[in-house]
Amino acid sequence: MTTLRPSAVLLDLALVAAALADAWVHVDSGEQPAMALALLAAGALTLRRRVPLTAFILTLPAALITDAVFATMAALYTLASLRRHRLQLAGCALLFAAGDYLPWPWSSLRATELTRTDGLLHVSYTLASAAAPVFLGQLVQARRDLSLRLAEISKAREHERLLTAQSVLAKERAQLAREMHDVVAHQVSLIAVQAGALQVGSADIETRRAAATIRQLSVQTLDELRHMVSVLRASGSRPTELTPQPCLADLQRLVDTSCIEAELETDLPEDLPPTVQRAVYRTVQEALTNVRKHAPGATATIHIHHQDGTLRTTITNTAPTRLALALPSAHHGLAGLRQRAELLGGLVTSGPTADGGYRLHLELPVDPTDEHAPGADSPPA
């Protein structure tokens, strides 16, 4: 059952009061049947929203035998504002006009015949009084329908703007996927082929080992690139899973294939939340990448410990022993690590050490709720 708003209740009470005032002015208190019908008509206005046709029918007798027609006009207006059946509205208007025009009792009709001019004026006035509530109600209904249509149009336009934005994004992603496939993947494939040729043709053991590592990393990079291209080409049309995300069990393999002399020390349990494991893995991965790029020849130590509800990861490298090559970098790595740590309620600090090396430190609170931290499953931009 729909609950009326306070403003609607006040309006209904005001209409009932106006109908009672109309009855008090136009109905003699000594005419009890007429007064009872006038009171019934006033009370029927409380039903005009729920059963408008019934409310109108209950007000008709008062309009027939008395001059108190306010309740009937109000009920007819409500009926016209809620119903769309034009024939029904026309019939109700004619009933009201007939009841208001004909005298009561009907037996006095011949005795009260009017002149032709007065009769036409009376009929015109009665028809106008009956038509006005219908036209006003239909106008209100049309205004309400127009407001709904405008709201629907605004919603449709907003949806169209969203579809346009998604279409533009899909084109950009498709273009990016083509660039990755045609340029980046091609160049990585050449690296893998050249590394394979060097591995087979070189007589030096260290050279063959380095070439094997390069080839292995190139093949792994190609697999990840292919999956990223498929994700971009999906363009949001269907759910697409990212590549299997790393965990702590993959740390040793990461260290072994890093081409860096590194020592890994960890005492972590195996039941850490996946988001925490990924954060630790990505931190170590970024640190080792920076060592290869900016500190060639350096050694690294990786300490990962869990104590008092806090997981601490520290990667420290020594000073470089060779001159670093100038490599392109967007400097987004550490910023991404800080974003990931903040999503998990943690902190990342970094800076040079006294001996010319570098230190990267991650602290994360370990709690069951971390697994559901918002945005934690998505890699930072």
Rank of each mutant, 00 (worst) to 15 (best):
P239D: 13
E160H: 11
E179A: 08
L163S: 11
A185C: 02
V219C: 04
S218L: 00
V229G: 01
Q245F: 05
E224M: 12
R161A: 14
T240Q: 13
Q175N: 08
A203W: 02
L242F: 12
I214E: 06
R238N: 05
I214L: 15
E179I: 07
S154K: 13
Q138D: 03
I153F: 07
A212Y: 06
T243N: 10
V183A: 02
M180K: 08
L190R: 06
T243D: 06
V140L: 12
P239H: 10
L232M: 11
G236M: 05
L232I: 08
R144Q: 13
A174N: 14
L222T: 02
R178S: 03
S237G: 04
V183F: 04
Q245K: 12
T213Y: 06
G201H: 02
S147P: 00
E241K: 11
L242M: 09
L190S: 07
S218I: 00
H181I: 00
G201K: 01
V200K: 05
R226P: 01
D204E: 06
A212L: 12
P244V: 10
D182K: 01
S189R: 12
Q194S: 07
A156Y: 04
V200Y: 08
D223K: 07
D204P: 01
E179K: 06
E179N: 07
S167G: 13
V229P: 01
Q245Y: 05
V219R: 07
V168E: 15
R209P: 02
Q194A: 11
Q175P: 00
A210N: 08
P239T: 06
V184E: 02
L198K: 04
K155L: 09
G236A: 05
A170R: 14
S237A: 10
K155S: 08
T207H: 03
H227E: 15
R208H: 03
L150V: 09
E206Y: 01
A177L: 06
Q199L: 05
E160Y: 08
R143E: 09
L169R: 14
M228L: 14
M228E: 12
D204F: 00
V200C: 03
Q199A: 15
L198P: 03
M228C: 09
T207P: 00
K171Q: 15
A142Q: 10
A165T: 14
M180C: 04
S202Q: 02
I214M: 15
R209T: 12
L222A: 05
G196P: 01
T207E: 10
V140M: 10
